[in-house]
Design a protein around this nucleic acid. Sequence first.
RNA 1: GUGGUUGUAGCUCAGUUGGUUAGAGCGCCGGAUUGUGAUUCCGGAGGUCGCCGGUUCGAACCCGGUCUUCCACCCCA
Length: 448
Amino acid sequence: MKPSIPKGTRDFLPAEVRRRDYIFEIIRKHFRRFGYQPIETPVMENLTTLTGKYGEEGDKLLFKVLNNGDFLGKANSEDLAAKDSNKVLSSISKRGLRYDLTVPFARYVVMHQNELAFPFKRYAIMPVWRADRPQKGRYQEFYQCDADVVGADSLLYEAELTQLLDAVFHELGLKAVIRLNNRKILAGLADIAGMADNMMDMTITIDKLDKIGWDKVAEELATRGADAGAIQVIKQFLDAKDLATVAPLLAESSVGRQGIAELQEVFDLVASQPIHNRIEFDVTLARGLNYYTGCIYEVAVDTTAPGQEKIKMGSIAGGGRYADLTSIFGMRDMPGVGISFGAERIYDVLEELNAFPADAAEDLQYLLLCLDDEALAHGFGLVSRLRARGVHADLYPKTTKLQKMMKYADQRGVPKVLIIGSEEVKTGNYSLKTMATGEQEKVQEKDL
RNA sequence: GUGGUUGUAGCUCAGUUGGUUAGAGCGCCGGAUUGUGAUUCCGGAGGUCGCCGGUUCGAACCCGGUCUUCCACCCCA
């Protein structure tokens, strides 16, 4: 049979795994430095936990796990006969793969509330699954890197997470622009534009501004129920470039005023400390997830930075404040704020910029090649002692033509090769070849 | 979910209006070279032309279906 993997999934070669780990390690390091703790949850959740949390679209994209055993025999026979997939689903599938890390986290907080200290700060770097149609940079299985804090509504956390985003991209050697907005500002806009009832439609549409331009946005706003007056108000808004310009426009809306005040405080806190990347207010920033209620973040590659002008990539990180994610699981007054890194996209950007460090390749230091059986026995002893000292070393497992073994060393990308023949066994003076230069010298075990 | 696109050797790709035995480069294996890779030369192996069906005397090529790839939407990371 011909080997294959499911669509939207990928295999990774050793060099790719190393580069992915390089990204994950940096993110993990900063998560921990800011006091976030690791947790793990199952790849499967009960469907009752997942459904209805991501909107109608999200429900369609959930991977469902078929029940074990005679699932059709136990299925609702009416729904089965009617071939109604949606109805029959509940009787043949009770579990699904997690769609993100946030909803499982909310479930986790509720279940473990008596064991956790609040504010509770956690991070998780784990794969999630979505039955979306694959596209460049979009897969059915991909990693999310999340940090969230729940049980506090302090704006210090918004500021802290901005610093965290800044620190990670700085260490990755990537110039980023961190954009902030506040859902309350958007709510205020919906208020004064008379679109409070379909704020969701409004935000999704204005989120597309930089992609499709104002004319198309106005068109779409109209089809989504905005009248001419509303469109005029919205345009005035979108033209505003800073908080000071937006603030007077929202004077009539209490929720809007609150959003302005919150965002101003976050900006002031962030500005009080050193920072490496651009931080901007962006009134067009909306973010799709409807559980966000306060500050929202989105990070993009700074295409004004030298060398990064040509990068075309959507958001590489994002997040926001949610007033309440846990009440649906029966726990009230548990606000939170979190961020998520798009590691797959960051990978693509770093690769395009050639920004991975060179040592993210093969980390083997020595490969031992033995020319006869006596040398092989000697080589096994030597490689064992090297490894015991923490040296990364490997031994070619049999004696064959040196040519063949050298070729293997070349393919492994190992920097130095140790050649062991009868002469070397006798004297302890090994032949050490540096692959890059072809130079060869005699060394002893203590020199390695 | 909608519209398009792609699939031929391990990889990247040619393949004429449908015609006999489907090719190239790279890679792989062997040799030139029995203690030296990446360069050179010689030789060799390797294919259910994504899969299923149809049209035809005859299909890699035409038609239908299906899976897959990539792209634009929807939505999102």
